[in-house]
Structures are given as structure tokens and as C-alpha cells.
Amino acid sequence: MHGWRRARLTERTKQTATGRTLTFEVPHWPGHLPGQHVDVRLTADDGYQAVRSYSLAAPAGAGGDRIELGVQATFGGEVSPYLADDLPVGAEVEVMGPLGGWFVRTPQDRGPLLLIAGGSGVVPVMAMLRARAASASGDPCVLLYSVRAPDEVWYATELDAVAEGVRVRLLYTRTAPEGSRRPAGRITADDLLGMPPPTDTHCYVCGPTAFVEHAGELLLAAGYGPDRIRTERFG
């Protein structure tokens, strides 16, 4: 599980101005659970190496030895801008994984699901949604997805298709589309009205630290137990 494996970039898809989906071919990939991540290692000509973690965006199985990562380029970053725009298709990096045993949804996990994502925090959540679609689970499922503006939505076209039986509610924080009933603004207690009940719902919250802190407070205030809220923060 923990050795470095060579991974060849086979496809890069633009999600937003700075967000990319990268598909790698990794021979003998052992599989993974929705919510897990990998470490990606880059090596410069002088031997210098840099490593960062990226979430897996798709469940294992469907793609065989292929894995899909979500990369959000951060301005001035050492690794993410290179992965987002410079690594040539066909070139190789190294990956280690899968990693992470906590922010995961296993096939045995049952019950209503409340997914709350901010920005590129939707990536590991997308793996859970895609796995749910593949398993034809009938459990209630809601995605609350907070983005600054309509052009920052990842998986925009796929969200409709993956969403059979899933309620997707987009929460725009800066700019809402014309005709939106909800005014632009960060997630509030009102946005949690009508969600699956606290009694048996599992919550997964992923996004920038301030977003996760705030959403976590709202969930606790709405009666969701701390032991049913799993979080992943970045930035």
C-alpha cells in the first residue's frame, strides 16, 4: 500500500478557471474507498522532490488501473500550478496510496447521507456520490455545495446525472445566477432546513478551513451529533 508507484497522466479536464481533473494510469492500483486521497510526488532534474496530497474524485473499480484526482491551482503554489497546467499528458509522476481511513464512505455504510462541500472540497464528496450512483443505493442523500459563483462549479454537467435520488443544492456565496431565490451568501442555518434528520444521518464536510468550521458549528447547532460528522479541511 505504501510504496511509490509510477502514474502516467492520460487526461486533463478543465473544471473551472483554476480547477482541473487529472486522470492517471497507475499499473496494479490496489483500489480505494470514496473519500480517500493520494500523495503525489514530483521530482526535479536536480533530484529535489516535492509531495502534496490530492483527493480521489472517482470510486475504484470503474476505471481499473485509472485514478482521477482533483487539483485546484493555488496562486504561487509549488506543486498545484504545475499539475494543473504544466505536466504534459503522457508524462509520469509518482503516487502513494490510497491514504486516509476516516473521511471515507465504505460500501457497507448505510443510512441517510448529508454531504457539504465548499469549492474544490467537492472532489472527495464526488467520489462518494459516484459510488452511490454505481451501487443504486436508495438511502436519502443531499449535497449542499457552496461556491463563490456559477462559473466555479466543478462537475457542473455531471451533477445532474449523478443526482438521481440525490438532492443537489448549490449555495452561491458571492454571485448567484439570475432568478435565484436564495440570495448570495455563506451557508446558514436556514440552508439546513429540510435536510435528512439528525438521528441517523451521516455528515461529511469538506472545504476550506473557515467553511468547515462554520458548517460544523451549524450542524452541531441543528442537533447532528459530533460522532456523525466527519470533516476534511484544507488551506
Binding site: D45, Y48, A50, E78, Y82, D86, P88, A91, E92, E94
Partner: peptide, 14 residues
């Protein structure tokens, strides 16, 4: 080594 991540230079050497 030389064939991995072509064009990557890194910033953290210092």
C-alpha cells in the same frame, strides 16, 4: 529520475 515530472523545478530547496 530524469524522466519524472518533466519541467518541474520546485521552490522549497532553501
Amino acid at each position: 529520475m530524469g524522466d519524472l515530472s518533466p519541467g518541474f523545478h520546485g521552490k522549497s530547496h532553501a
